[in-house]
Design a binder for these strands. Structure first.
Length: 803
DNA sequence: CAGTGAGCGAGCTTCCGCTTGACTT
């Protein structure tokens, strides 16, 4: 029998708190929300003041039963969910579902998991704040209404299985807007002038304060410099300071992990989750930059002991973000004395990042001396500038430097050699280089999170899931793009002669960037046209301020919803009844061969190009070809579209069978005698000839022959093969891993069969997968939904794709 | 590693936020 039952949201938190509270307290976790709106459209009774009906989620039934039992026996139940809107609602749902007696229930809050904070909370209990709960209900109901009214309009007017919502639709819009901005961008070039001098054996670089628009102007300038002398006109020394960044929130952690470690946002979050569960870091879903008093002192001690007094600068950070709810601390190491932890390499690296960022935030500013030298060019009014930096005191830079999103062209953190005013410089050379302006960068997952946070859209717990959702729906995809070549002009003045050269550089290379799809653009345009209120970047902010009024008791939650829903629902009905289907058909021009028009549009199976119109009386049916990955209806050219019809291409006959070239899901390939051979990047599918194709086929045969390590007379279908990741066992279409304990050369048929036997034991997952397969056969219509709901879907889909 | 793109109509999809596992390679 428990005297006191404390309920928190997270099990890791429960474990820690239990230690602080002693044996009279049992601490349990409810694992977040225990109830939610019922599944269907009936969950909100619009006619009855939007009365919501809630259901205990299937996966929470067990925990709810356990809590019910424990709470019945307890003398006092302490509801200790987070101190924000959602947390308050969790406490309220608990009290409702567990049927808690108000006299035996106390609500407590703390935003740091430290012993003094917990004990203080216990001493200052309160009751559930029903206004705050109502604000959460308003948020929940609004999101359901928006999502479940808009999505069906999309099914009707655009395509089935699409979705729209307050958060996701705006996230997609950000990406679509950025893509269009980039497509409409016209790059301009200007000539940048750089000079280098020899100062006491060291090379010093200086740049002209202006750039020249044309090559001619740049050339004229170099011409004038041919016989000029260069003198130091002025030296300016400016002391500056650099401050450390605040400790991590979810959003800034995701950004830095992306920039410094190359992790996607969901990777970062799952590694952080592990660190949290092992007690290495504080809670990872937070919007607060605040550190507990305890942490600030611990950091201070650590810094003084390891770096000295002068490096310590205890600092309280406050958030600039209005939408922040600050229920937790910033993300920091639990113990500053642990500079390293045990764990996977990924965990170690992320911990290191979190550790350094937190420590640095409590360290002194760096002191930097910036020197600017103005260099006079005899006979000219323009000046050259050389800048240099000297680090006078490293401060926090000893451990951590925040990185930025834009890859700037030069770093001017170089030191300047000793200089004096009036000194004449030893000229080495001067060059004029053509530089191009660049459009705004495409979003990475992390920079999209940053933007969403700025707009107050989404929460720390939803950034990563939202980004997965918009990719799953096919609105956007994370892709790499190869850059294109561009020529630029370089003029070099050296030893009184000017030499011109034309060089090549790559531009537009993209790595793990978010690109919109045609469907993403279509849906965004449709929603923009008919639901501009929801698509407004300020919509969330404006409803948030209403939620605040509800929380303060100034506004009734269902009044707020009513005011929004009235006009919104009218718009939904009107659009659903009268709006035209959204498509983005574009005529690109005429096919020079047939003279027929060439179109691109979205069809049942995705975007495609079409030659000729689909008329009933037309003697010839139009020709169709799917667009390739990376091609958009909005930007594809006539030439690119016509290329799509050049494949598949019959190259010729080899060993009495045709060789065909085409482009598939994995890129360009040849097919010969129903065998597939990838065409390497060095060859062109449109140009590849018979001789080269035969060469590729023969190469493939050699490598296939090497693939076989061992076969067994006992069973022809069982083989040991050489794969991309080393040897493996294959039987028919199934592959099996060879355990590390086995040596390949010692494998007998019996041993191999034992491995196969062990591997193919029906696990729970395999059974679940089978069920999905069966339901698919039985009810083909339910295929998609059944597959989507189960975790097994991903794997079975992958398997199918492989075959 | 395809090629598909007509049309009917049944039955399906869908939101955001709070939490972890339990899967797979």
């Amino acid at each position: 029998m428990t005297k006191n039952l404390v309920i928190v949201e997270s099990p890791a938190k429960a474990k820690t708190i239990e230690k602080f509270l002693g044996k009279d307290f049992t601490v349990k976790s409810c694992f977040g929300h225990i109830r939610d709106l019922a599944k269907g459209d009936a969950a909100i009774d619009v006619a009855n003041n939007f009365k919501p009906s809630y259901e205990v989620s299937e996966d929470k039934k067990a925990i709810v039963a356990e809590l019910k039992k424990l709470s019945k026996d307890a003398e006092m139940v302490w509801l200790a969910s987070d101190e924000d809107r959602e947390g308050e609602a969790i406490s309220w749902h608990l009290s409702e579902v567990l049927k808690l007696d108000e006299a035996k229930t106390k609500r407590i809050v703390f935003h740091e998991i430290t012993k003094p904070a917990i004990l203080k909370a216990i001493e200052n209990p309160r009751h559930i704040d029903h206004n705050l709960v109502d604000a959460q209900q308003a948020r929940r109901v609004l999101d359901r209404l928006v999502g479940f009214e808009l999505s069906p309009v999309l099914w009707k007017k655009v395509k089935a299985n699409l979705s729209a919502g307050r958060v996701q639709s705006v996230a997609v819009k950000l990406i679509v807007d950025r893509e269009r901005e980039i497509n409409q961008f016209h790059s301009q070039s200007a000539f940048r002038i750089l000079a280098s001098f020899n100062v006491g054996g060291k090379t010093m670089e200086a740049e002209l304060g202006k750039r020249f628009d044309t090559e001619e102007e740049a050339y004229q300038f170099l011409e004038k410099c041919k016989s000029a002398s260069f003198t130091i006109k002025q030296l300016e020394v400016k002391p500056t300071e650099k401050s450390p960044a605040a400790p991590f929130t979810t959003s800034t952690l995701q950004q830095e992990a992306s920039r410094k470690l190359g992790y996607g946002v969901s990777t970062t979050m799952s590694i952080a989750q592990k660190l949290y569960e092992h007690g290495h870091i504080t809670y990872m879903r937070t919007d607060s930059v605040n550190l507990s008093e305890l942490a600030i002192n611990a950091a201070k001690n650590h810094i003084i002991n390891n770096f000295g007094e002068s490096y310590s600068r205890p600092m309280r950070y406050s958030t600039k973000n209005e939408s922040a709810q600050e229920a937790h601390e910033a993300i920091r190491p639990t113990y500053f004395e642990n500079q390293d932890i045990d764990g996977t390499p990924q965990e170690k690296r992320l911990y290191d990042l979190i550790y350094k960022r937190a420590i640095a935030s409590q360290m002194s500013k760096a002191k930097i001396e910036k020197t600017i030298a103005q260099i006079e060019i005899s006979g000219l009014s323009e000046m050259l500038l050389a800048t240099g930096e000297v680090l006078k005191f490293d401060g926090f830079l000893k451990v951590y430097l925040e990185s930025t999103d834009d890859e700037s062209e030069d770093d001017n953190s170089k030191m300047l050699p000793p200089l004096s005013v009036g000194e004449e410089l030893n000229f080495i050379q001067m060059e004029a280089v053509q530089r191009f302006t660049r459009p705004s960068a495409r979003y990475t997952e992390a920079s999209l999170v940053k933007k969403m946070e700025e707009l107050g859209i989404g929460r720390p717990s939803t950034y990563a899931p939202t980004i997965s959702t918009i990719q799953k729906r096919g609105y956007v995809s994370k892709e790499d793009r190869e850059g294109k070549d561009r020529q630029f002009v370089q003029l070099v003045l050296e030893k009184s002669t000017i030499n011109k050269s034309v060089k090549t550089e790559k531009f537009g290379t993209e790595k793990s960037k978010l690109f919109p799809s045609d469907i993403g653009m279509l849906v965004t345009d449709f929603l923009n046209k008919h639901f501009d209120q929801i698509m407004d970047f300020g919509f969330t902010a404006s409803v948030e301020s209403e939620f605040d009024k509800i929380a303060n008791g100034q506004l009734k939650w269902n009044k707020m919803i009513e005011k929004f829903y009235g006009p919104f629902h009218v718009e939904v009905t009107k659009t659903s009844e009268t709006a035209e289907r959204q498509n983005a058909e574009r005529q690109l021009g005429l096919d020079p061969e047939s003279g027929l028009p060439v179109f691109v549009r979205v069809g049942r199976f995705g975007p495609f190009a079409q030659i000729g119109e689909s008329k009933e009386d037309a003697k010839e049916k139009p020709k169709y070809a799917s667009l390739r990955a990376g091609q958009l209806i909005e930007t594809i050219t006539l030439e690119e579209a016509l290329d799509l019809f050049k494949l598949p291409r019959i190259i010729g006959v080899f060993e009495e069978k045709e060789i065909k070239a085409a482009i598939g899901r994995f890129g360009p390939y040849l097919v010969h005698n129903s065998k597939f051979i990838s065409i390497p990047k060095t060859d062109d599918v449109f140009e590849i000839n018979l001789a080269r194709s035969i060469e590729l086929i023969e190469n493939k045969r050699v490598s296939d022959a090497n693939k076989l390590i061992k076969s067994f007379p006992e069973d022809e279908s069982v083989k040991i093969l050489n794969g991309r990741w080393g040897p493996y066992i294959g039987r028919g279409k199934d592959n099996f891993k060879i355990p590390k304990t086995e040596k390949v050369e010692d494998l007998t048929f019996e041993k191999v069969m034992a491995i196969i036997e062990k591997d193919s034991k029906p696990t729970k997952a395999a059974a679940a997968k089978k069920e999905v397969e069966i339901s698919k056969v039985a009810k083909p219509a339910a295929k998609k939904s059944a597959a989507k709901k189960t975790a097994a879907k991903k794997t079975s889909a992958k398997k199918r794709a492989k075959k």
